[in-house]
Amino acid sequence: MTMQATDIATYNFAYLDEQTKRMIRRAILKGIAIPGYQVPFASREMPMPYGWGTGGVQVTASIIGPGDVLKVIDQGADDTTNAVSIRAFFKKVADVAVTTETAKATIIQTRHRIPEHPLTAGQTLVYQVPIPEPLRFLEPRETETRKMHALEEYGLMHVKLYEDIARHGRIATTYAYPVKVEGRYVMDPSPTPKFDNPKMHMSPALQLFGAGREKRIYAVPPFTEVVSLDFEDHPFEVQSFDQPCALCGAHQVYLDEVILDDHGGHMFVCSDTDHCEKRREEGHAGHLAGDAFAALQHNVPGDSGKKE
């Protein structure tokens, strides 16, 4: 990458030095070659704490080029702290174009959601992963879990689902729901809601997973089979919501609960803010859209609410 001639020390393009990027790209390529397999890599210190997406940032930094358009979401939202700061980080260190529109982005770094807008070929989804090992809470020994992956001993994963049914009458795991990739490796899809699991199956986009603290990278290449684990008599199913988004009226999307006041008032809105805004621009409206929402805003510090 070109360095500007200046007396002041500058960052390399996209923060990481070229040797580090090379190392991470090799891990990514290996991950793509073995879908769902956790590839160890020499995770670097990043200018942010562990748990804030150091793995995802390293993956993004290694694959991003000057022509890329970056979108960063945190729980589906483009405007929360984590998303805003990571977006600002790449704007500063790579000078790339950023967007909040799913369709325009070439790289989407995400913490826990897959955008509602269908991804297309050529797009890359980068997940920030806290704990890459799906068997971790059942088997604490890393040597043992690696052996279990190697020998395809996945009975233990079903023990967890069994426990769910025994305790709650149904599979109560709602996020980090284990999946089997291409009929071989069981993988933790990072703590995305299981609502998004079906979107991973046969996705035309490349999906990369980076866990900075745990030093693992794994990948799901485009058009790969991703099957959520279940029991014959308790099949996998996604969450359903009995009301549409309060702002845009969308059905079949993942909703967040927003508390409105101290008297139990609440509403359910799209977790994907870009999707919600797009729909409202197109003229869709939920029961709290526009003036109805503004009227409720008197004690909510908000953006568009009228002050009275």
Partner: peptide, 27 residues
């Protein structure tokens, strides 16, 4: 034993390990 999972799951683990995927039968 797996001390952190229920007795039923402890007994059922081997069945699940050999590919039994029917909750009712395992239970």
């Amino acid at each position: 034993l797996r001390m952190t999972v229920s007795a039923g799951a402890n007994v059922g683990e081997r069945l699940m390990a050999v590919g039994d995927r029917h909750y009712g039968n395992i239970r």
